[in-house]
Computed example of a mutant assay.
Amino acid sequence: MGTEGTVLGVVIAVVGVIGSVLVARVSAPRPAPAAGPPLEDDDRAAPALEVSPEIFSHFSNRIRSLEDKVDHLTTAFEAQTIRVTTLERLLRQAMRIIRAANKRLRGAGLEPEPVPRELIPYSID
Rank of each mutant, 00 (worst) to 15 (best):
L8H: 07
E111F: 05
V11I: 15
E50D: 12
V70Y: 10
P47H: 00
S65W: 12
R83E: 15
D43G: 05
G16F: 00
T3G: 01
F56D: 09
V10R: 12
A28D: 03
V7W: 04
G107K: 01
R30F: 11
R64G: 11
V51F: 02
G9L: 08
G107L: 08
L8I: 06
R44E: 14
L105S: 04
I18A: 13
I97S: 08
L8G: 14
L73C: 08
I12G: 07
D41T: 12
S60V: 07
Q80K: 12
I124W: 07
R96I: 03
A46I: 00
L8Q: 10
Q80N: 14
D43A: 06
Q80E: 15
M1N: 07
P53L: 05
P112G: 01
F59T: 11
M1F: 01
A24V: 06
A100Q: 15
A24C: 06
M95I: 04
E78Y: 11
L8C: 06
I18R: 04
D41A: 15
V84C: 03
R44Y: 04
E111R: 04
A76R: 15
E113M: 06
A32R: 13
T85C: 09
A28V: 03
A28Q: 08
S27E: 04
L90G: 03
I124R: 06
V115L: 04
R99Y: 04
V7L: 09
L22Y: 00
R25M: 06
R92N: 05
S60Q: 13
G107M: 00
V11F: 07
L73E: 13
V15Q: 08
D42Q: 10
F56T: 04
Q93A: 14
K103Q: 10
T6G: 02
N61C: 05
A45P: 00
Q93R: 04
H72Y: 09
E67V: 11
S27D: 03
L22K: 05
R99D: 12
E88N: 12
P33M: 09
A108D: 11
R44P: 01
H58Y: 08
F59H: 14
S20E: 14
F56Q: 07
A32V: 06
H72D: 12
V115K: 03
L73Y: 15
A28T: 03
G9Q: 04
P29L: 01
D41L: 15
V17P: 00
A101V: 15
A108E: 14
P47W: 02
R64D: 14
R106T: 12
E40F: 02
P53V: 03
R104W: 02
G109S: 08
T75K: 14
R64S: 14
L90D: 09
L66T: 01
P53N: 08
A24K: 03
V10K: 11
D41F: 08
A76G: 09
S123H: 10
S27K: 02
P29I: 01
L66Q: 13
I55N: 01
L39I: 09
L119I: 06
S52C: 08
R25A: 07
P112F: 03
G36R: 09
D43K: 00
R106A: 07
D41K: 15
I98F: 11
Q93K: 12
P116Y: 07
R64N: 14
E4P: 00
D68E: 11
A79E: 13
D68I: 00
Q80S: 11
R104P: 02
P33K: 05
R30D: 07
R62M: 13
R30M: 09
S27T: 06
